[in-house]
Nucleic acid binder design. Sequence first.
DNA 1: CTTAGCGGCCTTTTT
DNA 2: GGCCGCTAAG
Length: 837
Amino acid sequence: MVPAPPAPARGPISARARAVTAAAPYLEGLNPEQRLAVETLDGAVLVLAGAGTGKTRVLTTRIGHIMATGRARGSQILAVTFTNKAAREMKHRIGALVGGEVEGMPWLGTFHSIGVKILRRHAELAGLKSGFTILDTDDQIRLLKQVLDVASVDKERWPARQLAGLIDGWKNRGQTPDMVPKGEAASFADGKGGQLYAEYQKRLKELNAVDFGDLLVECVRLFREHPDVLADYRSRFRYILVDEYQDTNTVQYLWLKLLALGRETPLVGKAAGSDNASPNVCCVGDDDQSIYGWRGAEVDNILRFDKDFPGATVIRLERNYRSTGHILAAASHVIAMNQGRLGKTLFTDGVKGEKVTVTGVWDDTEEARIVGDEIERLRKGGHKLNEIAVLMRASFQMRAFEDRFITLGMPYRVIGGPRFYERAEIKDAIAYLEVVHNPTHDLKFERIVNVPKRGIGDTTVHRIIAHSRARAIPLAIAAAEMVQADELSPKTRRSLNDLLASIERWRSRIAGMRHTDLAEMIFDESGYTAMLQADKSPQAQSRLENLKELVRFMHDFDTLEGFLEHVSLVMDIDSGNDGERVTLMTLHAAKGLEFDTVFLPGWEEGLFPHQRALDESGLKGLEEERRLAYVGLTRAKKRARVSFTENRRTRGLFQSATPSRFVDELPEADVEVIEAKGPFSGAYRSLGGGGGAGGYGGGSRFDNEAFKSSYQTPGWQRAQQHSQQQGSGPGQGGHGHAHGAGQGQAQGRPGGTSGSAYGAGQTKRWPDKGGARTPRLIEGQVLASSTGSASEFKRGDRVFHEKFGYGAVSEVDGNKLTVDFEKAGQKKVVDSFVERG
DNA sequence: CTTAGCGGCCTTTTT
DNA sequence: GGCCGCTAAG
């Protein structure tokens, strides 16, 4: 049911608020709805903020307003976000608003960071010691493996990962081992699922550790079991604000309800306003942008807000300040196909702007090519590369774009690859630091005990673990005891002893030297740096760089301890990633961002909507996929470019694809069909042309029939011939090597190489250079022959490339090089992307 | 203890 | 087609 439109602010509240307004410049420039959202301070408020309607501004202004009106001090406001990034942004903006640092808001943070804060204060009540450690996903898996071992579960059939997923899911729903539904608990390891979960929790307690899920589950338990503690927080938090409410999962929801209402169920049938606990809770979100159902988010939370908080004020922000008319209309039309939504109608006063374009192409290579060409064109027209993004459904799609951009010399950055703290070398490094800081951190100890390899293998580790279990002591102590005894072979014994001695030695230096120097010392003396230096693989270099980056980052902290506390929670680093670059990322990663021009490739059935979402979640899954389409479109300020391929390469082989149903859901009036200008566009062109001008003659414009028939056209056949020639042609064969998805290259190239090395205006375009020089046109080659400047490299030079590693130059053409990479095969690259190897 | 080779998996991802 | 994780051989 769609809640009634918001009633205007009433009585004394508005009067009071208005009185303030005169002296509150921050309220100026807000539209009426935004202002209402800022000024409705009493009771529960749900702000439905459509894409680009000024959500963050409302949230931050509201906080500023609460403080400015003296209703509460910063320390009495609880403001939760999902990501550290969002928390940072909010802090920053409130700071700008209030003028000054936001030291006064200790309770602004992520659900998890606030959860830790609360748990640390009452650790004993939660059955923990105050210095408990927080396990990351890696530690979690490690621990689960041990649990599976002890229970002698076949790890082949029942991987620890899967159990981790299940436990995560249970924790997301706030279920402790005894609360897990029997059927579900039985679904793992022949009915042992529940037991294993219980065992895992027991081990966590023994280790004085919690995982991410526990930060909330344990908090909820604390609140339930200790009403006095809950009451304390309830009186402390006069105002509660929640960002991205549509993304909350069940524990977060319970957590909030306990804090806001003091109980988990709303008063049924009671007059809402009479509840003098008066939860001043304000949730901001957009049901249409709920795209995290698969990791436990419950859209229902936002859909039933007014049932949880009877009498809640619902305010809709529908005035969009981001996108031009056609884009907004297209997005709205698509999202309107969804059933379960609260319903909003976004509008804009701005210009209609350009229509959303739809282009069908032959395959992913051509798709990347037309996108690259268009970006080239836009850049020449003065478009900022930072204002361009390519948003895709799945990360494997990025490959084609990266390849193409490298060929073009187009600077790009990838967001959402493996993040900094997820890289193996960083985890190793942090594990060392953690062990030095706290030698009883068993999982970290286990991680580094044989990295770099020092002859302490699985058997030894297992014996240490067994010993530590038997005596209920930490691994490091167990190891020390075993070194004293004659348990181990002399070699192992010595090696282990050296390690333990080193740890002690480093530990004794904590107080005496700068933590950054200590870190360097540790990486050096442990042999870790030496290991990377000895590593000839192409990634080793950037790994060393990452370590340096880590040490640089440590400078921001005063102590080792401070640094470690930070990283256990914040798996994120703000690295200077500046410079003009095109952004490549997934649709998920794009939520909350905006760009002038947005490319949306891969709109094909099976990929988007993703087949798996459909199979596993049916209509619900489809609607979430549709919301993803909505999120994608609404990222665009001025230009949105949708494309789909007719042939998608999956698992190495080509499969013909059908355009996404979402393409058909775009409203005719706001869309323009564009022909691909490449040589492979025959099929689509025939469709667009054959279907009548515009191609919108009712029914599906892109359905299978149309495509089937187009397969007979000359264009298609030509294209097919082409692709066959290409497939076997030189320079194409290299496709598919060495991408090493996520090998620390996630940032694209490091600074230094500049896109400007690639002279604009020198590019000759398809297809004018036809068969004159080569019978087959191989992409990249035309470009390769067209640049004037001579390269500093010559045939036979050995070079190093950030992404492809080492190789030898086999051909030089202007500033384009053909290089035979040792690992990656033959690639064409721009010389500015390589250095002498 | 290390390394090579084989088999299974393959959407999205924060804390 | 490629990567990760595990197992079995050296």
